[in-house]
Design a protein around this nucleic acid. Structure first.
Lengths: 363, 363
DNA sequence: TCATGCTGTGGAATCGTTTCCATGGAAACG
DNA sequence: CGTTTCCATGGAAACGATTCCACAGCATGA
């Protein structure tokens, strides 16, 4: 690993390091001969400038940090992808950190990123505003929040307006005759978990649908809790005829259990998920989703971060969400009972409300 | 952004920068008083050492690069996760790059990583050994290949022995009476694509099954080509009764089309996929897979890289793959014809094992 | 008592680059 | 022809840390 420095280039080109540096960084104060000589020497030696030394002198590193809460969640994998592409286009490299839903790992990565003097940080924050996140703010390191926010911290953010999509989803289900909609919620410790739950509550209330608190199951944004949620909701004396899951992994868990119980999605029970994952559309039946653009989120987050780095104070952005109707929610409320897998379907019970009420289950 | 340097710490503690540095880096040649004073000062000022300056002097950066071919592929997302965790445990930060299946982007990231003087690079290589990958080798920058290799390049690697898993899968299908197995292959431009195809060819030959070349469809490791593959194979005059997909995105595409055509996986047609993705087991029927441990792959790659960094020359590792039998491949060959979607399913084929078979669905 | 070894400390060199400042020569102007 | 302006250039300082080297103080052994 013999390192080639600018000195070697300068020597080969027969100029001083100062001149070599000027040529390499495109300063206009150079003669054509110097430019040609240095360029040739650099090419011949396959010279790569030492980014550390450059950063040490010039105080900026052309790199940003991206801290997500879980790389394995397809939403964050996609986010990582778009952020990285947008940053690359602007000449920045992205250092990816994975908090793994754990605060101490978030702190560890934040410390490392601060140490490496990244020019800015995009973070999907975890927990309250304590720990290294506070250091970040106090040191005035350019920071942008994505997807989530932290109460009491004045940091530009790009988030999703869950309200619209959730209201559309509830309206759509109500129009099909559903009155009891089960909601598999995210954790209330995250801003997204809280916002979406509040939006659901408001939507259900404004439509005059059942506000039975039993219809809400609090999960943790992971697949297993989606499964547990379905189990719990279907065991109710009056189970929901439609389900809304607050993120994609929980929707996956929900689908698994619905299959296992022999319930046909889109026919025996309606299902809508928050987050549009590529293969959701490939399922049979294709999944109706509340979609929000992860591309926009990543791109805008990078643009905002660049603005903060440039000394600006951009306004926070709230992206729209919209309902995409596919087969999983297309059927109206059926006469069929929601039953555990082991129990065979019985007779068709009388309808509760003449127009569209769900059928009460008898036991 | 007022930077706090070691000078500030030394001044506050009333010692020289040399002593401060010794205390901060844990050198034993320090007095208890110096240790206490410097530690207190550093804490009070919330001092974070400048990683660039440190790296400049000490020629190693405590960071590694990870270059994957596509972050959005769950396999590589998982790999990123394990590599990052293993590296973190060893005190290294991971810089993630995403080649996005494009050679010029791989080169761009490789250049950046070289510039930033990462201590080593883990890469799932793309293309032949030209471009920046050659610079890497020539500069003797510690490098380890994961998942894929490049012909003619002597670089330690950790890959999967596709042979065993594919042989088991073919044997399993043969035992159930399948003689015509369709294979949705990866691109022959990648080492994994070639290896798996060769393994399939050998397995089929050794079992005396049909070697009809029409039974092989060449995809590109993306979902869409999995769909196209199923279409092509089912249109054959004598279609296969079982399918094997060479990676998970293509399996996803295959499943979508099978559903659309009204074919029940595990009953009308058997399906096995290479790569075990968490939610494959949650599908109904659960997908039989050829599993290889992405955790082991990531962990071993990091261990090997650390060895190379330490001056060693570790042997390449080939990880085992194994067949995991689930419901999607559990039924024997049915007497039922493979029919296009527009035709209604006919009779119910006989169930194979009462215990493991998928629950019959009523309709 | 003097040479010797050990320990903690500070000064200064160093890493590779950028950039300020001084300089020398050429061109331009009176 | 002499003076000023301009421009390309080289020397050297600076960035923030680590580390070599020298040295002072003290204990030890001959």
């Amino acid at each position: 690993m013999v390192a080639i420095t600018i000195k070697d280039v300068a020597a080969l080109a027969g100029v001083s390091v100062a001149t070599a540096s000027r040529v390499l960084s495109g300063s206009p104060a150079t003669s054509p001969e110097a430019r040609a000589g240095v360029a040739a020497a650099a090419a011949q030696l396959d010279y790569r400038p030492n980014a550390q030394a450059r950063a040490l002198r010039s105080t900026h590193t052309e790199s940003i940090g991206l801290l997500v809460s879980d790389v394995r969640n397809p939403f964050f994998a996609d986010l990582a992808h778009t952020v990285e592409q947008a940053a690359l286009a602007a000449g920045y490299v992205t250092l990816l950190g994975n908090a793994n839903e754990r605060k101490e790992q978030q702190d560890r990565y934040l410390d490392t990123l601060i140490s490496r003097r990244v020019d800015g940080i995009v973070v999907a924050p975890l927990g309250d505003g304590s720990g290294s996140i506070r250091s970040l703010i106090e040191r005035k390191i350019p920071t942008v929040f994505v997807d989530r926010t932290v109460d009491g911290l004045h940091v530009p953010s790009v988030t999703t307006d869950s309200e619209t999509g959730i209201r559309e989803a509830v309206a759509h289900l109500a129009a099909a005759g559903h009155t009891r909609i089960g909601y598999i919620s995210g954790p209330q410790a995250t801003s997204t978990g809280r916002d979406r739950f509040a939006a659901f509550t408001r939507a259900v209330a404004s439509r005059g649908l059942s506000q039975d608190p039993e219809l809400v199951y609090f999960g943790d944004f992971q697949a297993a809790s989606g499964s547990a949620g379905v189990h719990a909701l279907l065991e109710l004396r009056r189970p929901p005829t439609a389900l809304l899951a607050a993120d994609s992994p929980m929707a996956v868990g929900a689908i698994a259990i619905l299959h296992r119980r022999g319930l046909r999605i889109g026919r025996d029970i309606a299902l809508i998920a928050f987050d549009d994952i590529e293969w959701f559309a490939l399922l049979d039946p294709a999944l109706s989703v509340i979609s929000h653009s992860v591309e926009d989120m990543g791109r805008i987050a990078v643009r905002m971060l660049l603005e903060v780095i440039g000394g600006g104070t951009p306004e926070s952005v709230v992206l729209p969400s919209e309902l995409i109707i596919r087969a999983s929610s297309s059927a109206p409320v059926s006469g069929r009972l929601v039953v555990p897998a082991s129990v065979a379907p019985a007779s068709v019970p009388p309808s509760e409300s003449p127009a569209a009420g769900p059928r009460p289950r008898k036991n």
